[in-house]
Nucleic acid binder design. Structure first.
Length: 309
DNA sequence: AAATATTCCAACCGCCATCGG
DNA sequence: CCCGATGGCGGTTGGAATATT
């Protein structure tokens, strides 16, 4: 006898999510936080299995997600981390704030793989392909300076990529390296190299600065009678499923959801030290909840919602 | 303009790890 | 220690969108 399915699929909906379903899920999570996913569909009024709800939230609806293609610098980080970690997409994703494992995996399979092959590099081993091919000049493999405690020479000895390949394509691309370093500094993953891979916990990398790193509180769970979560507390935010107390400071600033401009949304979440936390705080704050849910729906479904009105 | 091929990504599937009883 | 429930992860797929013929 095999393992039981995660849920009884009879009568449950599958396939693409509708705006209405998204709205229900967003409303529920914003109101109650993430709890037992198995219970979520029933409590939220959804005809989905809990697993489907969790995936939809983590891969698409989470307010801290970035959208759009990975930037060149993000690609570089992905490639380098993949060389160290292999297909451990969730670990790789944990180094890229706002990106999901699914997104990175998809981007790897659809874009990066091709680029590497085109360059004559085996995407599996990160070594040159056996049959000689023309290696295009590219910015992907410049010296990766965010290995801050290593010189290029040391790096070349530790990387799986042939050093000649690296130096050849990289020597005149120094400026981008600084950008790459900055990106990674933001992610707080400096000071590691191929033989020592620090796996940063999500709560460490998602919070950009300062006093925002706070000890986690237990997640609220509707079905839990032992939880010490105080539902009357309004100054809270959750990051990666963990509810945190929050330093009171709500400043949406110039950021409002613009249903026609995803960049605006993204910028708003990340444009300053406090932006991300403040915005999440607002998402949890009761007085904004309905409005924000509506705006999130408009963001996700700009056309359908505007035409309905 | 229509047919066909290709690309892309959201969603699903099944396995594994962890946790609690 | 065992077992079931649950969440997390990586591989795969279906189908919409786009490109090509």
């Amino acid at each position: 006898m095999g393992r039981q399915p995660c849920c009884d699929k009879v009568g449950l909906k599958q396939g693409p999510w509708t705006a209405d379903e998204d709205k229900k899920l967003i409303n529920f999570i914003l109101t109650n936080g993430q709890c037992c996913w198995r219970a979520v569909p029933k409590l939220a009024g959804l005809l989905r299995c809990g697993k489907s709800c969790r995936l939809r939230w983590t891969n698409y609806l989470r307010p801290d997600l970035k959208r759009g293609l990975l930037s060149e610098n993000e690609e570089k980080i992905v490639i380098d981390l993949h060389a160290q970690l292999g297909n451990r997409w969730s670990k790789i994703a944990s180094h890229l704030p706002g990106r999901t494992d699914n997104e990175i995996k998809n981007h790897w399979n659809t874009h990066i793989k091709k680029k590497l092959k085109k360059m004559g590099i085996d995407p599996l081993t990160h070594k040159p392909l056996s049959s000689p091919q023309v290696i295009e000049k590219t910015t992907i493999f410049e010296p990766i300076k965010y290995r801050t405690n290593k010189t290029n020479e040391e790096f070349k000895q530790t990387t799986s990529i042939q050093s000649s390949t690296i130096t050849e394509v990289a020597k005149d691309e120094q400026e981008d390296c600084e950008e790459s370093k900055n990106i990674v500094d933001e992610c707080q993953i400096i000071d590691f190299c191929t033989d020592e891979v620090p796996l940063i916990e999500p709560h460490e990398i998602l919070l950009p600065t300062n006093n925002n790193i706070l000890p986690p509180l237990p997640s609220p769970c509707l079905s839990s009678s032992t939880s010490n979560y105080d539902s009357s507390t309004s100054n809270q935010y959750f990051v990666q499923g963990t509810l945190h107390q929050h330093v009171p400071s709500i400043d949406w600033g110039s950021t409002s959801f613009d249903s026609t401009n995803y960049d605006n949304f993204e910028e708003g979440l990340w444009d300053n030290d406090d932006g991300f936390i403040s915005n999440l705080n607002m998402l949890i704050n009761d007085q904004y909840e309905t409005e924000i849910t509506t705006q999130m729906i408009q963001l996700l479904y700009p056309i359908s919602t505007t035409t309905q009105e």
